[in-house]
Design a binder for these strands. Structure first.
Lengths: 116, 116
DNA sequence: CTGGATCCGATTTGATACTG
DNA sequence: CAGTATCAAATCGGATCCAG
């Protein structure tokens, strides 16, 4: 496999590159929430259990910077900011869905207790 | 999405669970190498650029423990240990392939320079 | 309401030395 | 050759405070 640089970081393969864009604990949950609706910052915060202010803002920044989501600021007081998915973000949903399906299979194999 | 415990760690969704098993920087490259051949420790080490001794051993341990790979020890001097993929590991290859294909698309979109 | 910045502890990883 | 143990460095993430 080839290795290559992107934004001064070294990647060893395409999988690592993909996970660098939409991986980590929070990016997929965020993209998933925006799949088919626009949400305000506070709504995302409320919808995603356990995510902290710091992680939500930083992950939103990165997703926006790489054009997976749009950020729309309304010049009102108090502030109102809406996040929506982009075409690039929409394409990521398919992969997220297949990883999710695989995860459910594994959970079944590993007999993980969970609610439907 | 439900949250659940596995091995005393809290997961928030199936995607996170799947990535907990086969994610991280090294597990997919290891599984990929073992896709259709058995390899000795030293061969894996040589085949995977940049991986350190410590990371290779720890990741092999985890993959073995969760039955993604087999470990076969030959009682000879010097030691000889062979790693091969299991049925569960083989099933992970499909997901790895689709993430890889998605990664290649993204690399193209982001105009990442790389060798074929 | 949204967001940036700082501090600090926890976790992860790399380098190195040692073993049968 | 394969593996373990230890220590240090780097990274990550949570809590908290300030701001428009």
């Amino acid at each position: 496999m080839p290795e290559f640089l992107y934004n001064k970081k070294l990647y060893y393969n395409p999988v690592e590159f993909a996970m660098g864009r939409i991986g980590g604990t929070w990016k997929m949950p965020i993209l998933w929430r925006l799949k088919d609706k626009t949400l305000r910052y506070g709504e995302l915060k409320k919808d995603i259990p356990h995510i902290t202010h710091k992680m939500l803002t930083s992950q939103l920044r990165e997703l926006e910077e790489e054009d997976f989501i749009n950020r729309k600021v309304f010049p009102v007081v108090p502030p109102k900011v809406e996040y929506s998915i982009t075409e690039r973000g929409r394409r990521s949903i398919q992969i997220i869905e297949s990883i999710r399906a695989y995860g459910l299979e594994l959970m079944d194999e590993f007999k993980v207790e969970h609610k439907k």
